[in-house]
């Protein structure tokens, strides 16, 4: 019951839906950046939605399956081949023993999600197998030659995994597929007011929601860094470190915001002007460097 990592690509991580509720201990929620895509991949192969899968940044991953399996690839869109033949995305596919699965560079979006029937078997910390790139907790990024175990989770097997799982029969008929964002178009994300919106001048909020921001290549699972016309703080005293929520738009003195993503620090000392809606963060997880991002607020 194993998968051999022939080539991990630039960064492939084990992720599930993360570990919420431990920020008071200093732990980020972590989990798939595009949680909706991981959920879908899991549903397609009959897993509970929170089973561990792989988050594949920019393709490049090559896996060899030792045993037969059923897999589904969601999220980013690009050419994914099984023994050299392209397989459809957002559908379950049977994999024969010895088969090789290859991920091309995505043409739309940034991160593929791979679910394997039974889930990826990896150690758990506080109920989750997710890799947290900030604290280094969770499984290490995949390495060449590494073997991944396949678990035995399935919907309704009473393993305790069933929390939040939908009845398979409903979704298998109508899987909710959200296409990966077009890199040539702006991604729109809704924002609500943050706790320190009043630390900025009157023009900053209009500037936040009226311009197209550009995603910086310095972005990662910790934060999406944005480039554009800077926001202006009117208060200059030091802000004592305070708790930071997922999606917080934290603004350092440069005036260029960072959106806190799954592996964000649980506290921070820069003012938060706005917070991105949770459901729109999945799209930000698929934003490519250079992509335009527009905030709706």
């Amino acid at each position: 019951m194993a998968i051999v990592v022939v080539n991990p690509g630039p960064l492939t991580l084990v992720e599930d839906l993360g570990r919420q509720g431990w920020a008071s201990l200093g732990l980020s929620p972590s989990g798939a950046l595009d949680g909706q895509s991981l959920r879908l991949a899991n549903l397609l192969v009959g897993n509970p939605v929170d089973a561990a899968g792989l988050e594949i940044l920019l393709g490049g991953l090559r896996l060899r399956f030792v045993t037969a399996s059923t897999v589904a690839v969601t999220g980013a869109e690009g050419i994914v081949t099984l023994n050299g033949a392209e397989i459809p995305l957002n559908q379950a596919a049977r994999v024969a023993p010895g088969a090789v699965l290859d991920f091309g560079v995505p043409l739309f979006g940034l991160r593929y999600y791979l679910a394997v029937q039974g889930g990826i078997d990896a150690p758990k910390l506080l109920g989750s197998s997710s890799t947290d790139m900030l604290s280094g907790e969770g499984p290490a990024p995949l390495k060449s030659g590494e073997q991944l175990g396949i678990g035995r989770v399935s919907v309704g097997n009473g393993s305790g995994f069933s929390t939040g799982a939908w009845p398979l029969i409903n979704v298998a008929a109508h899987p909710a597929i959200r296409r990966a964002p077009d890199p040539g178009r702006a991604i729109t994300a809704r924002v609500d007011r943050g706790p320190r919106a009043d630390w900025f001048d009157h023009d900053s909020w209009p500037r936040l929601v009226s311009q197209d921001w550009i995603l910086s290549p310095d972005s990662n699972r910790i934060g999406a860094r944005l480039v554009g016309r800077p926001l202006t703080q009117t208060r200059h005293e030091e802000l004592p470190s305070e708790g930071m929520v997922l999606g917080a738009l934290q603004v350092p003195p440069s005036g260029l915001p960072t959106v806190f993503l799954a592996d964000h620090p649980v506290t921070g000392g820069y003012p938060v002007i706005a917070v991105v809606r949770r459901t729109d963060l999945d799209l930000l997880g698929q934003a490519r460097p250079g992509q335009r991002i527009r905030f709706l607020g």
């Binding site: 004592p240 305070e242 708790g243």
Partner: peptide, 10 residues
């Protein structure tokens, strides 16, 4: 989550 910090609780 209930997250205490220097002068706030989130």
């Amino acid at each position: 989550d209930v997250v205490p910090a220097a002068r706030t609780v989130l």
